[in-house]
Design a binder for these strands. Structure first.
Length: 496
RNA sequence: GGCCCCAUAGUCUAGUGGUUAGGACUCCGCUCUUUCAAGGCGGCAGCACGGGUUCGAAUCCCGUUGGGGCUACCA
């Protein structure tokens, strides 16, 4: 059997939302699961919308998710170039051939005229499509238009009888009436091909075996199939993926917040979590497993298992998945991931020593099970990095505003200060010792201590977090908090 | 408007004629006790509707409704 070759062919518009990435991912997964090739092709046939930076956005998105391509604009390959604007001569040659064979014709209608006629037809309740009038012109009439200086585009003469049947790997068999489509433009006045022509030609030239794209292209496939027939091209297999919708249930676009995939990185999502999450949109391994590694997904992926119904991109579940991935990360790995966020927040040096990274790993070890996004780490773990943290209202209410708290904190500070070794056990002994002496439950010391040292009522095991903090800092924080308490400055600020 | 696609809880999904309709997220409750935003346990909530076919339909067919896509010199 021939090698599987698939492609991801985005238009460089400056946007790379999750819908695009989803398509790229499924192509990549199919290629990898089949031992085939994943090709990146840039479809920049829309001169008006093209921006050079947009190509970079595509690279960034694919790289972030870890989707490597085997052939593409930057790395070349046997079918180079992989940018359509560099393949113009080939398209034009084919257009000429179709023209010569009478399968295509010049159309002299201007965009304004076309729009006007469409309006008119709509007003009459008729389908607003091109009537094919320029296809009836004889050479003399065409020459007359040319002499008038009218510009022309090229239209493909579509079949007007019968039906075109698409055997789609995901959507099944779909039939379209040929009489319902108009002669499509294959070459614009500018000489650039339209998507339809360029796509069909390049898929052929690049040996694409499976066209896996979003279902919005399903209706276009009718035209593509006819083009292929006219050109004697063996069509590839088609697999049209269901759309990924925004929360408003419409096709994802720049209107939705999800403009660029890089935003998810900035929001604190792990690429491996997003990979897993996106794979589960429209595909399922068939059993109840949901947290799957990249390797497992590749191994179990198939187009047959892809759903044909659209899905809504809902970050809630992605966040949960992200938390699962964070919790599973080795502490030192999490330290690396979290470092840029800490640096950004001004809580950590940009080039830390090995020792500092080990320490950061300890903090991560304490926090990783409760963090859902990398960004929350900088707020939830703030007290590990600075003495400048807030005393939350809840902490003030429950413990810090209590009259007996300052004394307790000072007593604990003395005991901790006197400790010769600083570790979980010694710290725990000191805390419990004080509780015993005061004849109160351990919680009566633990809670005020946590509130004083972290400013909050929640977090990891107190003894473990104290161990990670420096002895001197802990003692200072306890004394500072005690003083503030006595001064009446730790009363709740808000009242419910 | 025309054509096409889709339809299991708020969301992601399993399910291909016989299941108490399964799992996950969210939410809620309980629990653990050193706190919860963590862990454990439990709960709420679903086959869009109407007709068929069948001994029997989430599952097959038709219709309706709803949603979406296409109908561009965008892709």
């Amino acid at each position: 059997m021939a090698e599987v070759r698939v492609r991801f062919a985005p238009a460089p518009t400056g946007f790379m939302h999750v819908g695009n990435l989803h398509t790229a991912l499924f192509n990549w997964l199919f290629a990898r699961s089949q031992g085939g090739k994943f090709i990146l092709r840039i479809e920049d046939t829309d001169e008006l919308r093209f921006t050079p930076e947009a190509v970079q956005v595509i690279y960034d998105g694919l790289r972030w998710l870890g989707l490597d391509w085997d052939e593409g604009p930057d790395i070349g390959g046997p079918c180079a170039p992989y940018v359509q604007s560099e393949r113009l001569a080939g398209y034009q040659e084919t257009v000429q051939q179709l023209l010569d064979e009478g399968k295509a014709y010049e159309c002299f209608c201007t965009p304004e005229e076309l729009e006007e006629r469409r309006e008119l037809m709509r007003a009459r309740g008729l389908p607003p499509r091109y009537d094919g009038r320029c296809g009836e012109l004889d050479e003399a009439e065409r020459q007359k238009f040319r002499d008038e200086g009218r510009a022309s585009c090229i239209r493909f003469r579509v079949k007007q009888t019968g039906t075109t049947v698409i055997n789609d790997l995901i959507q099944g068999e779909v039939a379209y009436e040929n009489s319902l489509i108009a002669d499509g433009i294959i070459q614009k006045t500018s000489g650039f091909p339209t998507y339809h022509l360029a796509c069909v030609l390049d898929d052929e030239a690049m040996g694409i075996t499976h066209v896996i794209r979003a279902v919005e292209h399903l209706p276009n496939t009718q035209l593509h199939l006819q083009l292929q027939e006219a050109l004697g091209i063996q069509p590839p297999q088609y697999a049209h993926l269901p759309l990924v919708l925004g929360p408003d249930r419409t096709k994802l676009s720049k209107r939705h917040s999800a403009v660029s995939v890089v935003e998810y990185a900035e929001m604190g999502y792990l690429p491996e979590a997003m990979f897993n999450f996106l794979a589960l949109l429209g595909w399922s391994p068939g059993d109840e497993q949901e947290v799957l590694s990249r390797e497992e997904i590749i191994k179990r992926f198939s187009l047959e298992a892809c759903s044909s119904s659209p899905s809504v991109f809902d970050l809630q579940k992605a966040e949960w998945l992200n938390g699962e991935y964070i919790a599973a990360l080795a502490p030192e790995e999490l330290a690396q991931r979290v470092l840029p966020f800490l640096v950004e927040a001004g809580l950590f040096e940009a080039e830390p020593s090995e020792k500092r990274m080990i320490w950061l790993g300890q903090v991560c070890n304490l926090m990783k099970e409760r963090i859902k996004l990398l960004t929350t780490f900088t707020t939830w773990a703030r007290y590990f990095f600075t003495d400048d943290y807030e005393y939350e209202d809840r902490a003030r209410e429950k413990w810090l505003s209590r009259e007996d708290t300052p004394d307790k904190l000072d007593m604990l500070a003395d005991r901790l200060d006197a400790l010769e070794s600083w570790n979980v056990d010694s710290v725990e002994a000191a805390v419990r010792g004080l509780a015993e002496e005061l004849e109160v439950g351990a919680g009566q010391v633990i809670h005020p201590c946590r509130a004083a040292v972290t400013g909050t009522t929640i977090g990891p095991s107190l003894f473990h977090l104290l161990e990670v903090l420096a002895q001197g800092d802990v003692v200072a924080r306890l004394r500072r908090t005690a003083a503030l308490g006595r001064a009446g400055q730790l009363r709740p600020r808000k009242h419910a």
